[in-house]
Design a protein around this nucleic acid. Sequence first.
DNA 1: ATCAGATCGTTTGCATACAATCTAATCTCT
DNA 2: AGAGATTAGATTGTATGCAAACGATCTGAT
Lengths: 227, 227
Amino acid sequence: MTNQTSSSVSVGAKIRHDIIKGVHPPGGKLREAALAKQYAVSRIPIREALRSLEAEGLVESRPYSGSMVAPSPTEDAEDLFEIRIVLESATAKRAAKRAAQQSNGEAPDERWRGTRKEINEILDVGDIVIGQERYEDLAVLNMRFHFAIAELSGSLSFVSLLRQISGKIEWLYSLNVTRRGPQAWPEHRDIIAAIDAGQGSKAAEVMGQHVRRSRDSYFAMMAEKPA
Amino acid sequence: MTNQTSSSVSVGAKIRHDIIKGVHPPGGKLREAALAKQYAVSRIPIREALRSLEAEGLVESRPYSGSMVAPSPTEDAEDLFEIRIVLESATAKRAAKRAAQQSNGEAPDERWRGTRKEINEILDVGDIVIGQERYEDLAVLNMRFHFAIAELSGSLSFVSLLRQISGKIEWLYSLNVTRRGPQAWPEHRDIIAAIDAGQGSKAAEVMGQHVRRSRDSYFAMMAEKPA
DNA sequence: ATCAGATCGTTTGCATACAATCTAATCTCT
DNA sequence: AGAGATTAGATTGTATGCAAACGATCTGAT
């Protein structure tokens, strides 16, 4: 029962990382043979990885025509932020409701306590990373925080839906992380505070504001230095 | 430019259909070799299809352990309806806003007109299907209607997000289609009317109510005859 | 010169074959 | 008899080879 991680998912993670880092530019063609040589595997794992990335929206494919990197997420930044607002407000509200149930002593959920603990660690690590100005590590930490909130909501559907757009969100976030990152990180503690207090509508409101601020910061950045 | 549809997507559609129909029961193991023989293709297209279905949430996989049909959507019905409420209210609102822009004569979008036309056809076909009491065909028509609304919103992100949960939604809908279908279908015309009128918040409200009624009908059905 | 149609090279799609891993039934030792 | 190690069988993961389809280029007629 070693639960080995197959090579197609690890190579998928690498390609995903390289897309976000800009190694494979948006609109660039992704030839299976070239990728196979580049990542030192056969075409089969490459194909499977491309299917996963297609589901994440980072890659677009057409039968017999091949795959290409999706257009830069700047194209639908407005949409992505709007989706986050409605989706993550809902997860925050549900997480707060579950927190209230937990403190009422009903069914002490071990899984809940685990992710709640993990959030504290994520926040602490984020503080350190910011102190060292290692902003390039903040995008993935930010994503992990928001995933953890979704997990607190107790709904696998919300988690997998968030995962579906996580690629583009992380991509978008990394474009503005040096500006928005240090400012945004402390807001996370406000969100988790509202959740701990069991205040559903306040948690939703704080989360919504958090995302809206990220959106505004992003568009302000784009207005200053248009890509 | 024949744009041939590859065999892995067609077999994927078949498997998907069979899952919703219950041919492959929830929790049942999906052995690649068996599926390959059953659908008369090699294991490769089967694997690709399973990856797609996994992204849709209809299949769960673990490396080296295989795939199984996801638990019945009844498990997270509450979550799915809540997701639809927040997501589809947003698409309806945006569709109405775009409709207002269209009627103002700004940039007559041919693509918009196309899907708007398609919606009329879907609604008419649905009326016929209901008249003939062919309810089994209504689930896919219902899904196509809601997809078309998402397309009217002009946001590919919303469309692909809806696609992510469309499998489970259609599955859930088909469980209650004989009860809810005839009642729900006319409501679609109210939704499109609000969109045509360019009334964003009303369109969102009508869509929200539409989904809420589906939810209530579903749970009423489950209360009567618990699966 | 332009456009329709055929042709060739490149790339993806699929099938077969083999290796790596999991699972469960068996065996061993206490 | 029961718990843990072991081994055999089954199943998934990966590599290689071949067929199908696409896209660009060339050809030829108007």
